[in-house]
Write a protein that binds this DNA or RNA. Structure first.
Lengths: 144, 144
DNA sequence: CTACAAAATTTGTATATACAAATATATAAA
DNA sequence: TTTATATATTTGTATATACAAATTTTGTAG
């Protein structure tokens, strides 16, 4: 029945998501960061020197979180990012990645690439594209 | 480049997983349970009266967790399940769903079905099947 | 200029989760 | 029978996350 297929689809997305989440988390753990923390660092690297403020980071995060402030706090403690108050708008903060943060990402990049390739190794190129196409339909479904 | 597509695929699976996770969580929250708790209740209902022990439940969970004991504790506190020590093997415990738990599931079923349908409403039947097929390839990829 | 609402971030607090170590029981070997 | 090993679950503890309320600063209407 259709209803069963819907349920199976939902469960298979969830399971695969959890699996990938767990595997990447265990990789990042070796570098003493969490997956969301890594995600933030990568967003900041993408800024190419320009700072980002909290709300920008939140928007771009793979998993939107309720508490990005404390996540940044931890990255600051580890020396991977810096935080300043924005001159123009003192409500905002400006967040930068440090050299140490860039070095960390650099040391993770290759490992991550091979991990990701491994996870998807059974998929042909077409299947990856198909996956992206179908999943993006779900992403763009607005829920009330 | 291929590497970029791999990354995009991984991110799109993660994002979709988080999205579905969050939406279902917010539905279950109305009933004062979490998604993993719901999952356990549904596993127990599937036992059709027979008890399940902790390790069985853990194996079947959508998201394997490190701490199923306390998850069950919470369900017991709410009166949705019961726990006994197994007669044959006193290391094991036997977990049952109560009538109250069954009623809860019953009251959730319809809402959940329509939520799931809504989430996947943009997908044709073939696309759902294709999704399941491709994702199962990832599921069966053993990571060292 | 003052009061009020909006925006951006932070903080308090309760709950959830991960991980490792501890406990309890059963099985097997000597 | 004693000791060791494996199995099943529980507990301690540190960390992570969710959610709501509080704080700080800005913009705007009167």
């Amino acid at each position: 029945m259709e209803e069963q297929i819907i349920r199976d689809t939902v469960i298979s997305i969830l399971k695969t998501g959890y699996k990938i989440n767990d595997e990447l988390s265990s990789l990042f753990k070796k570098f003493d960061i969490s997956l969301p923390q890594f995600n933030v660092l990568r967003i900041l690297r993408g800024q190419k020197g320009k700072p980002a403020n909290l709300s920008t980071i939140q928007e771009r995060m793979v998993h939107k979180m309720s508490n990005t402030t404390r996540l940044i706090d931890k990255l600051i403690l580890k020396g991977f990012v810096k935080r300043n108050i924005c001159e123009n708008n003192r409500r905002k903060i400006e967040i930068y990645i440090t050299n140490s943060g860039l070095q960390l990402l650099d040391s993770i990049d290759d490992l991550l690439n091979s991990k990701e390739s491994f996870i998807l190794k059974k998929l042909k190129l077409d299947e990856k594209k198909e996956l992206i196409r179908i999943l993006s339909k779900i992403q763009t479904t607005q829920v009330n």
